[in-house]
Design a protein around this nucleic acid. Sequence first.
DNA 1: GCCACGGATGAAACTTACTTTCACGAGCGG
DNA 2: CCGCTCGTGAAAGTAAGTTTCATCCGTGGC
Lengths: 304, 304
Amino acid sequence: MAKSPKISASHEPGGLIVHISGLLPSLSPAEQRVARLVVADPADAARRTITDLATAAETSEATVIRFCRSVGMDGYPQLRIRLAAEAARRVEPPDARVVGGDIPPGADLAQIIATIAFNDARAVEETAEQLDPAVCEQVVEAIVGAGRIDVYGAGASGFVASDFQQKLHRIGRTAFYFPDVHTALTSAALLGRGDVAVGISHTGTTSDVIEVLEQARARGATTVALTNFPRSPITEVADFVLTTAARETTYRSGAMASRLAQLTVVDCLFVGVAARNRARARKALEATAAAVQTHRVGSGRRRG
Amino acid sequence: MAKSPKISASHEPGGLIVHISGLLPSLSPAEQRVARLVVADPADAARRTITDLATAAETSEATVIRFCRSVGMDGYPQLRIRLAAEAARRVEPPDARVVGGDIPPGADLAQIIATIAFNDARAVEETAEQLDPAVCEQVVEAIVGAGRIDVYGAGASGFVASDFQQKLHRIGRTAFYFPDVHTALTSAALLGRGDVAVGISHTGTTSDVIEVLEQARARGATTVALTNFPRSPITEVADFVLTTAARETTYRSGAMASRLAQLTVVDCLFVGVAARNRARARKALEATAAAVQTHRVGSGRRRG
DNA sequence: GCCACGGATGAAACTTACTTTCACGAGCGG
DNA sequence: CCGCTCGTGAAAGTAAGTTTCATCCGTGGC
């Protein structure tokens, strides 16, 4: 990477805040303080002067400017304006449900449900907003033309990887998923030019997955990373990077929001691939559906 | 008239532009030139610097400031921000995404993404809305008091079942998932009063899952069904029925929407259970998180 | 016609906000 | 332990925004 790690935010119609939260862990401590203020209350931040904001974040103006550059803005005034615009757009939720934050200790189940659903839905929506269709297109292209597709993921992301594998398989693409690192590495070693390796890691720091992608890349395969953090280590071994937009969350439902976001991305890719050859994909899907038909009861209309 | 004819615009949530055009005729010629530029393209005006705007209106900065005061702003920066916000709000509804229905054959990837995300998010939201907190509460209760929890699911629902099992396990509940019918049946036969069996089936017609639930029920276990169809066969063997709200869909992303909805429900149950004993759950989660820490790289901040 | 008078206007002085530069200090790898 | 890099804020520098003030014009009285 050249010099200034400026991550483009220009093709981001709706998601400045999302974009910033994604970048948050890659920022320096002082910049993170600024970022947190901004994310917490964009409208308020837009009203502040740079000196004001710097003081509030207990840092200097210089750091605020650096923060602006880090998130892809030219300077503070631009950030202000973008924030104001962003804030105006999202004044909507007047709901009582707890947004973004923690679930309060005394919450009843109805409240928990509302909060989880809201955050889950948001993660899905925001992920879609910040997904770059051009990159998706290239990934779809690669998958369509691939001799073989390997999908990797550890832990929770493993479910997603496995899901993706199954989906691709159902429409007749040759895809594999390995729950075990060693097997995965072995498989990666057998990949070659034209093949595709997809690595899924929410944090982007899962060494197992990174290793496997690295191996795949060394063999000439096209590598794709799916992570929540656009500057995490996994992005360094990937030809294409797709990001989800689950907010940094605490333990409760954060993991789930991120999972849903990942699944959404995977589904988009899947549909993109399937759309390339509708007839064949539909036929394959019908065949696989028919295969499990005998395991269904009451095949007709559902009774009361 | 006293001095500056400042007209308050602070109690004007939606209509800055309207407000300005309203008092346009009362402005001086030079100010009117400014006003017309602003009204014609608020977003563009917000991007300009005061000198820029003054030049464009063929006047001086001083006049622009006067204009700001005339329309009730404190100064130029405030106007800029208000304009940016205003502009953002009125560009909003460009909703080209296809709602609910099929993805048209000629759709480009951006459209596909928007459609999938929208439907996914909807499924999650609507599921939460129709979920009965009372039933959830009872299910949570049962799980909290259970000696053992068995989770069943076939095919795509198997992922969800497996996910649920893993979640429960991580907070120290004894939970099992069996991908194979025979093993599942065997396990169900060993359940007893106080144990819980959860069956997941989107259609509610998967005979394997129904069979297993039936077996579990016969042994005295509490049975829970998670399905999209409140009157499907599976509900007949369940003590508690939880439903998702994915619309009846064709092959494309319907499966995914239903999956996300299922995961959301599962997550709600999980959080509900975890909330019953915060301290213990948190401790267990921290322990499991720490266990995989060595498999992460760049434990600190991510670099570019 | 000439002279106040007042409002509108822009040039320039001024202030504040923003940006850049630079030196210091902490942490890391050799 | 040394040198390196990186994050940081102080301070210098630049640009943006604001105020002041002189000018210009039209108006209406003398």
